[in-house]
Design a protein around this nucleic acid. Structure first.
Lengths: 236, 236
DNA sequence: TGGATAGTAATGTATAGACATAATTTGAGG
DNA sequence: CCTCAAATTATGTCTATACATTACTATCCA
């Protein structure tokens, strides 16, 4: 129960806002009033309110005061865990089968390849992720060798390239596209499905600064995988 | 360009961590050393490091020091815009057709219904979202009338219930599940597809505090819709 | 009436110091 | 050599104060 005072102030108002007792637009007491309420110095109050500001729960305007923020409607946090960990957490055995490995120059006619690697060489890795020997996802990956030359010497047979990259290559930006598609012939063959079966397509590009690192396209068996995104404090 | 000093310290080290110049486990200078580096007081240094701690970029241990945090949690920001706005932004005409409206008690055998509304009544709304008169998504929605009694008097024929709720009912928590499924008979009929066609399933629950507000299940035509999630500064 | 100007109330940033807390290192005694 | 206690070091919390910044308010003068 040794809760710091600034944390108590913060959680007091966090609770009131999250419970709806303080509705969006409602005004909070000024720092001076809170100093009196909690019998503490202004810096302590300020630390609590700064934390709420950073969390996006309140808006503060000089001279005007402190107000409950409108919830940011359409941004949620999407957790994209590492596949190997994910499978292990479900208590299943993970395996990655490398089907193709190839170094080539980008096709100047394919925008996504030149966008990733400029004029530099590409490492192409195709494979399938398994959970308990059942195919879970098929993966086509491009890695820019000029951005990550050390990948050329790595043996990816067996280890997922995603996990290797995550551990060895820090990145600063990423973009993920999520869609539902029918499996084409190649994907269906890799996943042991009928062509046209619904698959969750996850396409991710990552950058470090301005340099493209990798572009990966994963097709998940629709019936075996889903994603969860959340907003606000954890629920269940 | 009037950047506060604590913010400059924070962004200096944020940049070094994100760029990989400081690898996970690396030790940062102590607060005393940073005071000298930046010629400022300890509180200023502390504010910068507290922000990095809150952002999960560093770990701090008493006596031991400050270290770059271990694994970068792979979480991204998912934008789930309002469908009506989304369609309008593409320059298309939006329409929502209400197919069913019904008030009933939750089925005690269906966990998701009692979880949403407890023992209170449910408003059931089924409909289809159109873009330029082409079906885009089919929607099955449950609303807890005890949490939002005012919905009972609203005429949802024509206006999307999602947009109405967003505007009138503040919520504090939400969870979204994303999956790829084949269209069942009912969904296929509403979307004018063949049964089994790949659809992006988006299932969202929202709460205010501990009270469930709404549970919505949307099936998007796979070929016509996708989601984008990003991490880091905007790219393209 | 209207418009510049001074006042004022709120947040934003920063300082210098104090004591609390936790973990590691060191030292004393067995 | 081992163990327990004390010193050390770095972070954690808090105070009291100061001045900066911003935007709203009121006032004065044309």
């Amino acid at each position: 129960m040794k809760q710091p005072l600034h944390d108590r102030i913060r959680s007091d108002y966090e609770a009131r806002i999250l419970s709806g007792a303080l509705l969006p637009g409602a005004r909070l007491p000024t720092e001076l009033e809170l100093m009196r309420d909690y019998a503490c110095s202004r810096m302590t109050v300020n630390k609590a309110l700064s934390a709420l500001t950073a969390a996006g729960l309140i808006d503060r305007r000089k001279r005007a005061g402190t107000f409950v923020a409108r919830p940011r409607v359409h941004s949620m946090v999407l957790d994209v865990p590492d596949l190997e960990q994910e499978v292990a957490q479900r208590g299943q055995r993970y395996r990655y089968d490398l089907l193709r490995r190839e170094v080539r120059m980008p096709d100047p006619g394919t925008a996504e390849e030149t966008l990733l690697a400029g004029a530099g060489p590409l490492l192409v890795l195709d494979g399938v992720h398994h959970a308990d020997d059942v195919p879970l996802a098929s993966e086509q990956r491009l890695i820019s060798l000029s951005a990550v030359p050390e990948t050329e010497g790595v043996d990816f047979a067996g280890a997922s390239p995603g996990a290797w990259l995550l551990k060895h290559v820090p990145w600063t930006q990423a973009e993920t596209r999520i869609a539902a598609v029918g499996a084409d012939r190649a994907v269906a063959a890799g996943l042991n499905l009928l062509p046209g079966s619904p698959c969750l397509l996850i396409e991710r590009r990552t950058w470090r600064g301005d340099d493209g690192i990798t572009l990966v396209r994963q097709h998940f068996v629709g019936s075996a995988y889903d994603l969860i995104a959340t907003f606000g404090p954890a629920k269940g």
